[in-house]
């Protein structure tokens, strides 16, 4: 109960800060009025509605997607270092969108964003094949290194494509680290639908993933088909990660930092963990984004850099906590 109240409090603080903080200071009254007594001539209202609300929703979609995707990945692979960013799933989604834009010449429509899903799926399959995760619990180091390699390959290709098209530095940065700066230009509504779909699949298969964690032979005895569960998990990861990348670019580390906290708060029941991950992921992205706008204002630090500054030490912490024997 205490945890639930704390979580709710954190979530609302994150939302409030996202709406309030910015170049133009907005008070709680401004925010209330922007929603319930909108005045088209008030520039503060305009900023809140056209810039900060899209940013807020994009942050929540991305955070919830990456947080839940990380929790599903960690539950399926039983690897505390699994994260859609670090394992190259984000990079796969970003790569597919950028290649789509290159081939068709469109800069970035909703159709382009839809390519994020197959991109995420192909990268997931590749990383799990090379990482050896198909034979049950893959080795954390191999999975991590496979992610490093796939990330390096895909992000190098993304850089090459973007640089060759003489795009702006801003676009380059969006597709390499992730950002909420142009949230109002992203297809947020469609991606929200995809996120909900992915979350629903994850919630449905959650008990079966837990059964698998007991060992595949035992799970089979209980009537669970490992292949079907893994495929559904892949589908859920694809939908949630694809949605996140389409609205906010390839943000890393959210799916690494959130799941261990969710495990603790959700007390090791995967469905509860998923719900907690969605809330925590959203809060983490919004807080990181707000901090990024404040630290060296007026310059804005992209949310992907902020999550990496927090996430990299967490990565080292998780490695240190793993027993040396558990690495191979």
């Amino acid at each position: 109960m205490k945890a639930a109240i704390g979580l709710a409090l954190l979530f609302f603080v994150a939302i409030a800060l996202t709406l309030v903080v910015g170049v133009r200071d907005a008070g709680i009254a401004d925010i209330w009025n922007a929603f319930f007594a909108f005045d088209a001539n008030d520039p503060t209202h305009a900023v809140i509605r056209s810039v900060r609300v899209p940013r807020l929703v994009a942050g929540l979609v991305a955070g919830a997607g990456l947080g839940m995707a990380g929790t599903v990945m960690q539950a399926v692979t039983r690897n505390p270092l699994a994260d859609p960013g670090l394992l190259g799933v984000n990079a796969g989604a970003a790569f597919a969108v950028v290649v789509g834009a290159l081939l068709t010449g469109y800069s970035d429509s909703g159709m382009m964003a839809a390519l994020a899903f197959p991109g995420a799926a192909i990268a997931s399959i590749a990383v799990f094949l090379v990482g050896g995760a198909r034979s049950g619990a893959g080795s954390p180091i191999r999975l991590t290194l496979a992610g490093v390699a796939i990330n390096a390959l895909l992000l190098s290709l993304v850089s090459a494509i973007i640089l060759s098209r003489n795009e702006t530095l801003e676009i380059f940065r969006f597709w390499v680290t992730g950002s909420l700066a142009q949230a109002n230009t992203r297809p947020i509504e469609a991606m929200f639908v995809a996120l909900v779909l992915g979350a629903a699949i994850a919630a449905v298969i959650a008990p079966r993933i837990e059964a698998l964690a007991l060992g595949s032979s035992l799970a089979r005895g209980l009537g669970t088909k490992p292949g079907a569960v893994q495929l559904s998990a892949l589908l859920a990861i694809m939908l949630m990660t694809g949605a996140a990348v389409a609205v906010a670019g390839p943000i890393a580390f959210v799916g690494l930092v959130v799941p261990p906290l969710a495990r603790r708060i959700g007390r090791h029941v995967l469905r509860r963990e998923l719900a907690v991950s969605a809330v925590l992921g959203g809060a983490m992205i919004l807080l990181a984004d707000t901090a990024g706008r404040l630290v060296v204002a007026p310059v804005e630090i992209r949310v992907g850099i902020m999550t990496a500054l927090v996430g990299a030490p967490v990565f080292i912490f998780v490695v240190r906590r793993m027993k040396p024997g558990a690495l191979t």
Binding site: L81, P140, I141, T144, L145, V148, T177, A252, F253, V296, V299, E300, I301, R302, I305, A308, L309, G311, A312, P313, F315, I316, V319, R320, P324, L327, T328
Partner: peptide, 29 residues
């Protein structure tokens, strides 16, 4: 106990992530 090579490599990867993030942070300014 003596550091295992795998722990060293993984921690190294983590340090690399952190250093790159700090570099990007500095570049923005």
């Amino acid at each position: 106990s003596r550091q295992s090579p795998l722990t060293l490599i993984l921690v190294g990867i983590g340090i690399g992530f952190f250093a790159s993030a700090v570099s990007s942070f500095l570049v923005i300014r």
